[in-house]
């Protein structure tokens, strides 16, 4: 029992996927611990959705190992699916049913579903509960997708770009929902384009670019300590300069002393998650273009 509690919920090693000649994934490796929220970051076409769909059992892998809740997703049966919650990247189109009908219907598939009205309230659709799904806006439909993903009280929740089309208020409401799932011990695999979302929600993250994993670690440690060293930028007669330094204040003091005046366009920047992410992705692009 203690062993299964500490065993990873998701375990991926050397995951590889070819579509004909195209290598969509080239050896992706990571584990997700029970109760952890793990973010997959990367540009469009990097392989995030391919990875998540292999783990959901929707795609077959070309090579490598994958285990989800102790089962190879290629052979996941009904009992396995009952423990998963899936929010796909694209919205399904059930259309002719109301929000409440759709959720009650899906709740009936699961052995221990959540309360339908509570889930509708949690995604902020209580006023639309009796509305046909085809009459909802894109963002509201996305909330139905999220509600369908959590209705079965999943142990592991897959969220593939869940907040696309959300307004800021809906996004914050979604974050609150995810935090309540985290408190209940739900393990979550999230892909997102919004780095603030990843920073808000996830414990660890992997950055994928061109089908390869270019970084893996705690979200506040991505890219290593090197990437977090503050940057001093200024301009003089020779043009713009930048210098990474652990002691930016001392560096600027030296700069002032040397030039005898106020440096032009001076700024001291602590790289944000977005800066670090872009640097990782661009470094990978450069490397591949030079091959």
């Amino acid at each position: 029992m203690t062993e299964s509690a500490s065993a990873p919920v998701v375990s991926v090693a050397g995951l590889t996927k070819h579509y004909g000649e195209v290598e969509a994934l080239r050896g992706v490796t990571f584990d997700i611990a029970p109760g952890e929220t793990f973010a997959l970051l990367g540009p469009n076409g990097a392989g995030k959705s391919t990875t998540i769909e292999i783990l959901e059992g929707f795609r077959d892998r070309t090579a490598g190992d994958a285990t989800v809740l102790g089962t190879d997703p290629t052979h996941g049966g009904i009992d396995w699916k009952a423990r998963l919650g899936i929010v796909l990247q694209s919205t399904g189109e059930p259309g002719n049913v109301t929000v409440h009908e759709q959720l009650s219907h899906f709740a009936s598939f699961y052995p221990d579903p959540r309360n339908v009205d509570e889930v509708i309230r949690a995604v902020g659709l209580e006023e639309k509960a009796k509305t046909l799904i085809r009459s909802l806006s894109g963002g509201q439909r996305r909330r139905v997708d999220v509600a369908l993903g959590v209705i079965g009280r999943p142990e592991l929740l897959f969220l593939d770009e869940p907040t696309t089309g959300f307004d800021p208020e809906a996004r914050h409401q979604f974050w609150d929902l995810i935090r309540s799932l985290q408190r209940e011990g739900t393990t979550i695999l999230l892909t997102t384009h919004y780095l603030d979302e990843a920073a808000q929600l996830s414990d660890r993250a992997a950055v994928i670019a061109g089908g390869r994993m270019v970084a893996l670690g705690r979200i506040d440690g991505l890219g290593g300590d090197e990437a977090r060293i503050p940057l001093v930028r200024w301009r003089d007669v020779d043009g713009p300069h930048e210098q990474r330094t652990e002691t930016p204040a001392a560096f600027v003091a030296d700069l002032v002393a040397a030039s005898g005046g106020e440096p032009r366009d001076l700024e001291i920047v602590r790289p944000s998650l977005e800066d670090i992410y872009l640097e990782l992705v661009q470094a990978d692009e450069k490397e591949r273009n030079s091959l």
């Binding site: 059992g57 009904i78 899936i86 796909l88 399904g92 899906f106 699961y110």
Partner: peptide
């Protein structure tokens, strides 16, 4: 083609 089957495929519906 509209994703309905994919959604059902991810659920424990036999």
């Amino acid at each position: 083609s509209d994703g309905t089957l994919k959604r059902l495929a991810g659920s424990p519906l036999p």
